[in-house]
Amino acid sequence: MLAKCIAIISVIDDTYDSYGTLDELIIFTEVVDRWDISEVDRLPNYMKPIYTSLLDLFNEYEREINEQDRFNGVNYVKEAMKEIVRSYYIEAEWFIEGKIPSFKEYLNNALVTGTYYLLAPASLLGMKSTSKKTFDWMMNKPKNLVASAIIGRVIDDLATYKIEKEKGQLVTGIECYMQENNLSVDEASAQLSEIAENAWKDLNKECIKTTT
C-alpha cells in the first residue's frame, strides 16, 4: 500500500514540477480536491490517466481493507493526498511566477510536499493494530512527525541546493533563507543544519518520553 502511494505521488510531483502549465495545474488541483471521476473530462488528455489511477488506487485500498478486520483509515490518507496536491500547486505557482517566499512560508509548504504528512498515515493503512485514535493523532501532526518532516526537508535542501541552482530553481530552502537574512550560502547552510539538529533533539525527546 505504501509503495503504491509513493509511486502515484512521484508521478503527480513530476506533473507539477516539469509538465503542467499553471492553468492545467489549477484544474488538476481542483479535481483532486473534489475527488469525483466525473471531473476527469475537465483535464487535458495526458493528465486523465494520472487522475483515474489515483482514484483507482484508493478504491483498491478500500476494497482490500474492507475484506480484512482492521480500521478503515483511507479517508484520512485521501485528505493528506489533497493537502499535498494543493501544496504542489503553491510550489508550481512560486516557480512559474518567479516568486521567492519568506523562509517560514516556504518551510510550512515544503513540510507538506516533503511527503511525510502523506506517507506516515499511508503506512498505517496496512497495520492491523491501528485505530481511529491512531489516525486522528497522526493527522494532527504530532511533534515527532513534524520533527521528522523538518529533518527530511532541510537535509534534502542542503544536499540538492547546487543541482537545483544549476537548473534555475529559485525557490529552495537555502535561497529563501539567504535572501531573508542576507547571508552567504555557507552561513545559511550552517544555520539550516542547526535547524535540523534541533529537530533531531525534538524527535529523540518525543521517542523517549512516557505516554499515558
Results as ranks from 00 to 15, higher is better:
4 K>E: 14
13 D>I: 04
60 E>W: 13
95 F>H: 04
102 S>T: 07
105 E>L: 10
152 G>D: 07
43 L>Q: 03
41 D>I: 11
154 V>F: 06
105 E>V: 09
178 M>W: 01
38 S>D: 13
169 Q>E: 14
128 K>D: 11
141 K>R: 14
2 L>R: 07
200 W>C: 04
128 K>P: 14
185 V>E: 13
48 K>T: 05
211 T>L: 12
199 A>E: 02
24 E>R: 07
98 G>E: 01
169 Q>F: 06
136 D>F: 00
134 T>A: 15
125 L>K: 09
37 I>S: 15
24 E>G: 04
148 S>M: 09
195 I>G: 02
156 D>N: 14
4 K>C: 09
162 K>H: 14
203 L>R: 00
47 M>N: 07
176 C>T: 11
150 I>W: 11
183 L>D: 06
57 L>Q: 05
130 T>W: 01
77 V>W: 01
53 S>F: 00
156 D>R: 10
28 F>K: 10
13 D>Q: 06
107 L>I: 12
103 F>Y: 12
143 K>D: 10
114 G>L: 12
111 L>E: 07
52 T>L: 15
148 S>W: 00
125 L>P: 11
182 N>W: 03
100 I>T: 06
190 A>M: 12
194 E>T: 04
70 R>Y: 02
41 D>K: 02
47 M>H: 09
93 E>T: 08
187 E>Q: 03
72 N>T: 05
70 R>L: 13
210 T>Y: 12
198 N>R: 13
20 G>E: 03
192 L>G: 03
102 S>Y: 06
154 V>Q: 12
33 D>R: 06
129 S>Y: 07
100 I>G: 05
117 Y>R: 11
29 T>L: 05
103 F>N: 12
200 W>Q: 04
54 L>T: 04
18 S>W: 00
72 N>P: 11
81 M>C: 07
45 N>C: 13
125 L>G: 14
26 I>M: 12
66 N>G: 14
191 Q>S: 08
52 T>K: 14
201 K>L: 02
68 Q>P: 05
210 T>C: 15
134 T>R: 09
63 R>A: 14
176 C>Q: 02
133 K>Y: 09
167 K>S: 00
144 N>M: 10
154 V>G: 11
168 G>I: 00
148 S>Y: 04
74 V>Q: 04
111 L>G: 11
183 L>Q: 07
101 P>R: 07
151 I>V: 06
209 K>F: 03
57 L>E: 11
184 S>D: 04
137 W>V: 10
208 I>V: 15
66 N>K: 15
53 S>E: 12
186 D>R: 14
94 W>D: 02
22 L>D: 01
176 C>H: 03
184 S>Y: 03
106 Y>S: 07
171 V>G: 06
45 N>V: 06
40 V>D: 11
29 T>F: 04
178 M>D: 06
80 A>K: 08
62 E>P: 05
49 P>E: 02
71 F>K: 12
44 P>V: 05
12 I>D: 05
63 R>C: 08
163 I>V: 13
24 E>A: 08
156 D>M: 04
1 M>I: 09
187 E>V: 01
188 A>K: 08
76 Y>W: 03
176 C>P: 05
102 S>P: 00
45 N>M: 12
173 G>V: 13
198 N>F: 09
197 E>R: 14
35 W>E: 02
33 D>W: 13
138 M>I: 15
92 A>Y: 03
64 E>I: 14
105 E>T: 10
91 E>F: 10
104 K>Q: 15
160 T>Q: 11
42 R>F: 01
119 L>P: 00
212 T>A: 12
68 Q>N: 15
31 V>T: 08
